[in-house]
Design a protein around this nucleic acid. Sequence first.
DNA 1: AATGAATGAGCCTTCATTCAT
DNA 2: GATGAATGAAGGCTCATTCAT
Lengths: 211, 211, 211, 211
Amino acid sequence: MQKTSAKSKQRRQEILAAALKCFTEHGLAATTIESIRKESGASVGSLYHHFGSKEAIAGALYIEGMQNHFEKLRGSLESGGGVRSGDGPAKMAGLAEFGVKTIVRTYCEWISENPSWAKFIFSTRGEMLDSSQRKRLKAENRAHMNYLKEFFREAQEQGEIKTYPASLYHSLLIGPAQDYARQWLNGRVREPLDTHTDILSEAAWRLFKTH
Amino acid sequence: MQKTSAKSKQRRQEILAAALKCFTEHGLAATTIESIRKESGASVGSLYHHFGSKEAIAGALYIEGMQNHFEKLRGSLESGGGVRSGDGPAKMAGLAEFGVKTIVRTYCEWISENPSWAKFIFSTRGEMLDSSQRKRLKAENRAHMNYLKEFFREAQEQGEIKTYPASLYHSLLIGPAQDYARQWLNGRVREPLDTHTDILSEAAWRLFKTH
Amino acid sequence: MQKTSAKSKQRRQEILAAALKCFTEHGLAATTIESIRKESGASVGSLYHHFGSKEAIAGALYIEGMQNHFEKLRGSLESGGGVRSGDGPAKMAGLAEFGVKTIVRTYCEWISENPSWAKFIFSTRGEMLDSSQRKRLKAENRAHMNYLKEFFREAQEQGEIKTYPASLYHSLLIGPAQDYARQWLNGRVREPLDTHTDILSEAAWRLFKTH
Amino acid sequence: MQKTSAKSKQRRQEILAAALKCFTEHGLAATTIESIRKESGASVGSLYHHFGSKEAIAGALYIEGMQNHFEKLRGSLESGGGVRSGDGPAKMAGLAEFGVKTIVRTYCEWISENPSWAKFIFSTRGEMLDSSQRKRLKAENRAHMNYLKEFFREAQEQGEIKTYPASLYHSLLIGPAQDYARQWLNGRVREPLDTHTDILSEAAWRLFKTH
DNA sequence: AATGAATGAGCCTTCATTCAT
DNA sequence: GATGAATGAAGGCTCATTCAT
């Protein structure tokens, strides 16, 4: 609203970008306020004016990253959904396969496009969130899960998708891609993650398809 | 050889055990020398007499953990090898399936039996190793990889195992189990890892079998 | 330029004064940051904000002390130069004697006026300087030496001053005064250094005069 | 008396030699018991068995060094005394000059022959001595001074030596040589001290001779 | 006499955070 | 909103010394 609002928002973004760079390069614990200050060009006082604490900076980054990933995934599932046609079991089968592969594919894409964010999220796992942020994130997680459950409900009911214990879905779907992503982000493998998007999404589908 | 060896070794082990407990409970960065001292009963000076630095304590734990896991896996693969019989392709097929499933199964078992070690290794990924330790570990890793390659070579050559880009084998084999293990160790899922050993090892085999 | 400059500079000076007192009383190695903090009234953080390390505090003191001494000596030589009169050899002879005696006299005066600084400089000899400070000091030393060489050049060329191996000038000129200063500063002799200024400066001249 | 006595004495000497090396190279404060242990090959326990504390090792070295220097000087003065002949004022005059020059000359020689000892003594000035050692050393110092006073008494009474305030003799005699020695031991000048023995001893005599 | 593991007080330094300007 | 000097708790590590074997 005020003129300063825009400037202020920009400063906020500069700080977040600088912080992400520091966290990615040196880790959360090893990053000091001073290093973020140097990287961002802001003053110590300014950092505290905008965020209040080091943890809060990391928390903001973490939540923003998760939301960004969720949104991208929902976007992919929906955009893809609109193209489909046909009806009956065939449509369902297509939808299940499309869904599974899209989840893996989008996962690979997001990480490839946001390697810093991914590295930061992988390495911190949200340990810095305060209880209010944690609550908020949990709610969004739940909503996201429900969204996915809804997406696959019909296919599931039609027996188009293998049934596993509930807590295993995530691991079977994402596990291989995640492991590769971690290795890539830590420099333990060369080929970029998206080199293997097809293999990884097909492998996931092989674990879920019933026919 | 030395007179003091026995007692000294014991003290060393006490320190390592205490440190592992602290690292697992509070993380590497958040664990202080003072907390290890309190937990182990040793004095600060004794900690430094035996290890020289906090990082060195963590490094010793990390390397020992990796070795322990490697040894267990090799033990499983070899003990299982003795049971097999028959010959020709059938034997090979059996060996490949046995190998893949044994790797996943042993992975699940080791983590279930050594949750602290596993949590510590997962969360630090060896970031604390100094260059000499790192070199040593890399050599052992390579040797382990060669061992596994040799184990599967015949099966591979006979076409009993799907061919993937080299850097993907680890992720496809271990990814799901690892993801579940992480979740379990962090309290994000309830059922213990070994509840799902069968499903996870069969899933892995499904990704590798050719028939 | 900066707003805070005045206050900040004052705090810096308070710290230096406190540090000099501590160093003089207990020695460089035996002086703790805590003792400087107590003496100066600044906080530990403030000490490090301004200087970065204990060595850097000592280094700043050392360099400042040397500069102060150099400046005083140059001032004395120049102010004295204006008083001289006459010309030809006589003038030169006067200048040489004036120069030699002024160096010793000023040395004695400076130490008498700045016993703490002198004691600190004698006892540390710059061992705490980091390489950049060391380089800077070396440059200033060289400049000072050139200044003195220039001062005596004519007298030297006219044979008004005895010729010695270059590296001996300092010792022959300053040696006795320095030895007495050390003894006085360490309480091994009673009479203050400046009691003997005349004797010491005349002794020096006796070693350098040619007639 | 016992067999072990010889061995023990040797071990003691090894320790002292190692300690002197460490003190000279890194300074008293920066030398640790551990570094002396490494250099000497003895165990920590052995160091404490023989000396009782780090300060005691340094103290033993300091006192031994001072005694060694005193002895050498007395030896030089006495051996030289035997060569002299003649009688009356002439003999006295010769004795004064011989004495002054011999003191400086022997000082230069001792430092040239024992640079480590000299460096150690210069840089510590006996600060590490406990009160009993200090008392002992003071007594020896006084005795030495009396010896010298006695040596020069006749010459002094005959007016063969300039009269200065008592506390200045040492500085006028030794000051230049000492300053050069310090510079040489600290690497600030190249030419070895004994290169300049003649100049330094003659300079000293110039300050003391009356004719 | 020798050994080296054990002890713990004490040190330097870091760093998140506060606050006056 | 911005700045950066000031704060002080806390941490890793050192090292002289002790002591059981």
